[in-house]
Design a protein around this nucleic acid. Sequence first.
DNA 1: TACGCTTCTTAAGGTATCTTAAGTTTTTTC
DNA 2: GAAAAAACTTAAGATACCTTAAGAAGCGTA
Lengths: 196, 196
Amino acid sequence: MNNRNQHIQSFINHINKSVTLDEVGVEKLSSILIFKELNKKEFLIEPGTNANTMNFIVQGCMRSYYLDENAQEYTLQLGIEEWWINDLYSYLSRKKSRMYVQALEKTLLIQIPRVALEKLYIEVPEISNFFRKKIQNAYVAVQERVIDSMSDNAYERYDSFRKTYRDIEQRVPQYIIASYLGVTPEFLSYLRKKHS
Amino acid sequence: MNNRNQHIQSFINHINKSVTLDEVGVEKLSSILIFKELNKKEFLIEPGTNANTMNFIVQGCMRSYYLDENAQEYTLQLGIEEWWINDLYSYLSRKKSRMYVQALEKTLLIQIPRVALEKLYIEVPEISNFFRKKIQNAYVAVQERVIDSMSDNAYERYDSFRKTYRDIEQRVPQYIIASYLGVTPEFLSYLRKKHS
DNA sequence: TACGCTTCTTAAGGTATCTTAAGTTTTTTC
DNA sequence: GAAAAAACTTAAGATACCTTAAGAAGCGTA
């Protein structure tokens, strides 16, 4: 497949939006990438397994969610093309995950194994900077959600969800959006009608 | 003051609970510490300023909170002796803070300036590991709060707050606990009565 | 195309939480 | 130690959100 090279190319472009890799950096990074395909509903991570890669979505749609004792789902992250998806906690701490990370469509990922990536951090500091920023942004995003959950009502959260995830909303079932917003699907349906 | 050395000693003990510093590490770390005193209600960080230090509470009680357009406060973090307090976002990203970090009692901090700390990371990797873990834990704590805010009702959140922050609850006004839980002070008061 | 499964909608009744407002208690300040 | 300020409580009425249940619509597969 020559697709493979195209995908790597646009992956490198994605990285170069935040930092500047020289040719050696590009070369070294490209050499450790792994492609992985997931079918719709297939799991990348399940509770009890370990997240040992960083995962970039080339094509498709993914989510991470937590499942509680009452079989209630809490969606923590959604992602489509050019987004990263993971259980960062498991990846960073090397502990077992307590989440599911699942494909919502047939999905193609580019994965970077932690071991190889950490070696690269030393040889190519720009790559280290790139992921440092990613992790910072993840932290900020979660913190913002804490504030939003306290300050905004469900419709306000839905509204800002649609602004932030414009391209995602169409592709994801509504009950998953409800589980991201922290409301029941019935109530989300009611809100949509009320404000339409 | 000889207090100073005692405080440094117990600070080092705190670090040594998570990692193992050799004598050189201890020496180097000790040499970059700064003591800072805050009066009750005094601010360590305000919106528009930068967080350039890591802050360890030697004695006292602090909180970080976000203030929205409606003058509503959202408490994000509380801490007492042996806890760390900061606006990690500002510290990590080097961007201006959007939070307040404030002393709730007369407080003594040990501060580590970022510049010196980052130099130390290279010379004493154990210290780098220590703070990597701290930041991971901060991320996990915030993520857990997102899940709790969706899955637990206010009384359950209050109850687990009391378990997690047993020693803090007594020292902090109730309206601040309410602003941490995301409920009105009136409702927290009602809950306390109902369950007593 | 049709059947079965998944997702979405509607609606009624219930519970959790908020708002306002006033009174009480505690803490701070002089 | 008295006055002022801050924090807490109580209660009534309002609103947001949930639960249950049932039917409708959409989608995947034979």
